[in-house]
Write a protein that binds this DNA or RNA. Structure first.
Lengths: 220, 220
DNA sequence: TAAAATTTTTAGACAAGTCTAAAAATATTT
DNA sequence: AAATATTTTTAGACTTGTCTAAAAATTTTA
């Protein structure tokens, strides 16, 4: 399929797609505006444009959802973004908190074969440095099961498999707490008052706020 | 130095810089329009804008030249472009005729350290796949001596060190004629009528037009 | 050097994407 | 269900980079 979309259009599609995946429902104008750091009126304009191009389904005052065409654009942009993140961390040795903004630019490079060659060079990785799954060439993507550390019971152990927030400040906090993908965490205690958690990580005990624990994907 | 330039501004600076290097004189509006594939009126607008920002020197009706600020932008864009070309050919195994348009996009990625890390990963190459010199981190660049195959005398031999034209059609022609960087060429004969040349390449004899021979940089 | 040709600039328009301010629709509260 | 609050859309404006058509300046030609 050959759309010819601007970076702005691709970014809106990514936003609408990912909010849609998270919530499962039609995506509100204000939600999109929040994610895109823009104004609701700008969102209305863009959604109308994407709707005219058959990339989103939109009913006035009722929010939007990507069509299958729109989804395929969004997924291929995600694929590009995540492969570039792998390249930046694995090949160029950036830290995982430095790559988001650069990948945000690289994902929009137009080329028939660039992303596939990159995929091959990186040896077809399944996850990016933040644990997000990388769609394959056909757009097939295995989503996280969305189990957050915050929902793990006291006494149970789990393994960190991803971060929901890729902001530099969050990732730097994790670096300091020596939390990275693959780390085993045991939940020692959950504070009733603010849901802060006491954790055991490699025989050290630390306390993290709810804000932290609800942004860490875990398994088991 | 921290300018914050659009891709269009960077492209105009590159064009004005490179025409200026080639000709040594002030660069005409029409020359820029030709190189940028746009209209003279658009060039006038952009040159005015770059002049307001102190990136080019412009006198009405008299053409433009980059200032030292403008030159440093142009050179760092060239550096980025050429390093990305190396990456595409050496790392991702693109053919040299496939990389120009992709590098044209990649050169505009904004990042403080991306290009330097790429340079390191590629082991600080001196030349890109078309033989163009790569400016170092400080913008120092060793220009070609501009000796073209067309100026080599009958009976003399030389080595191909670069191509002036990076178009896919020219590069494909060279591939077919098994002319690549480093190849030794002996000039057997120059036709008076059209300056076409008879060449010996690896004991095979071929004839090339003036159009070809004046687009090949050679040494010795 | 005056006329003709060319080059460059100006003037006004357009598309993309954004914004503010106000109007319209929907949702919530009482 | 009416009043109030919130969300969404519309209307009009601005910026960037482009264009066409026409005017102005420069260069070439005769």
């Amino acid at each position: 399929m050959k759309f010819n979309l601007s970076q702005a259009e691709e970014n809106y599609l990514k936003a609408i797609y990912s909010i849609g995946i998270d919530t499962g429902k039609s995506v509100n104008t204000n939600q999109i505006a929040l994610k895109m750091k823009t104004k609701a009126s700008s969102v209305t304009d863009m959604v109308k444009k994407l709707s005219d191009k058959g990339l989103v389904e939109h009913k006035k005052y009722k929010g939007a959802l990507v069509t299958s065409k729109g989804e395929s654009v969004a997924v291929s942009t995600l694929r590009s973004h995540r492969l570039w993140e792998c390249f930046l961390v694995d090949t160029l040795e950036f830290n995982w908190d430095e790559v988001h903004d650069i990948a945000e630019q690289l994902e929009h490079i137009k080329s028939d074969s660039l992303v596939d060659r990159l995929d091959q060079f990186l040896n077809f990785p399944s996850y990016d440095p933040h644990g997000d799954p990388i769609p394959d060439k056909n757009g097939v993507i295995k989503h996280h099961k969305n189990v957050m550390l915050s929902s793990v019971e006291v006494g149970a152990s789990c393994i960190v498999i991803g971060v929901k927030d890729s902001s530099s400040s969050f990732l730097k906090f994790l670096d300091n707490a020596s939390i990275c993908l693959g780390k085993k965490i045991k939940v020692l205690k959950v504070e009733d008052f603010d849901q802060s958690m006491q954790l055991e990580i490699e025989s050290k005990v630390i306390t993290v706020s709810h804000q932290i624990s609800k942004n860490l994907y875990v398994k088991k």
